Amino acid sequence: MIELFDLVNVAIGVVLIIAIMLVGVFIFGRLTKFNDLEEIQKGNEAAGMYLGSKLLGLSIIVAMVSYNSLSWLSMISWSVIGMVILSLVYLLFEFLTPKFKVSDEIAQGNKAVARLLGAVIIGTSVVLGTVLM
């Protein structure tokens, strides 16, 4: 039987996950030279793929750390660490591709770059989530 305590825990978890995702959108958006949401609104599929990959990657991390966290504070802390590491992965990827600027390519709608970076982010998230568990 579902108890009130369980329902409250689920509600707290949902609110925290939404908050973590919103913070993630904000932080990830600050890394690029363009406004992710404006580009998506204009129909830039590459920007949508890129933002979607970042949020999926963050979701993977949050899911894995939530599974093993004993407290909400622990889940939030590990999620923030995951967010920081994903941000560093983006910056490293930008640095390791000196022949083109990732953010410029995505702003121009280059889906190939968005897919490649998305795969790197999601792959990193799976590995990172496993390590943070």
Rank of each mutant, 00 (worst) to 15 (best):
M1I: 14
M1T: 15
M1S: 15
M1D: 09
M1E: 14
I2R: 15
I2G: 11
I2N: 12
E3D: 10
E3N: 10
L4R: 05
F5D: 14
D6C: 08
D6A: 13
D6Y: 11
L7A: 12
V8L: 14
A11L: 07
A11K: 00
A11N: 04
I12S: 05
I12G: 08
G13K: 12
V14M: 11
V14F: 03
V14S: 07
V15N: 05
V15S: 04
V15E: 04
L16E: 14
I17M: 07
I18W: 03
I18H: 06
A19M: 11
A19T: 05
I20S: 10
M21S: 01
M21L: 13
V23F: 13
G24D: 08
V25H: 05
F26K: 13
I27P: 07
G29S: 09
R30Q: 12
L31M: 11
D36N: 08
L37G: 03
E38T: 13
I40Q: 07
I40H: 03
Q41H: 01
Q41N: 09
N44Y: 05
N44F: 08
A47H: 13
A47L: 14
A47N: 14
M49Y: 04
Y50V: 01
G52F: 04
G52A: 05
S53T: 00
S53N: 06
S53V: 05
K54F: 14
L55S: 01
L55Y: 02
L56A: 15
G57Y: 06
G57H: 01
G57I: 00
L58Q: 10
I60S: 14
S66P: 10
Y67F: 06
N68V: 06
N68E: 05
N68C: 07
N68H: 03
S69L: 02
W72G: 04
W72F: 15
M75I: 08
M75C: 12
S77N: 09
S77K: 13
S77G: 15
S79G: 13
G82N: 06
V84T: 01
V84M: 08
V84Y: 04
S87A: 10
S87D: 01
S87K: 02
E94V: 11
F95D: 03
F95A: 14
L96V: 10
T97C: 04
T97H: 12
P98G: 11
K99R: 06
F100S: 07
F100I: 14
V102W: 00
V102S: 04
D104Y: 12
E105F: 00
E105S: 09
I106N: 10
Q108T: 08
Q108H: 07
N110A: 04
A112S: 04
L116R: 09
L116P: 03
L117E: 03
L117Y: 09
G118N: 02
G118F: 00
A119C: 10
A119L: 10
A119V: 06
I121Q: 11
I121N: 09
I122K: 07
G123Q: 00
G123P: 00
T124V: 15
S125T: 02
V127T: 12
G129A: 06
V131W: 11
L132H: 00
M133S: 06
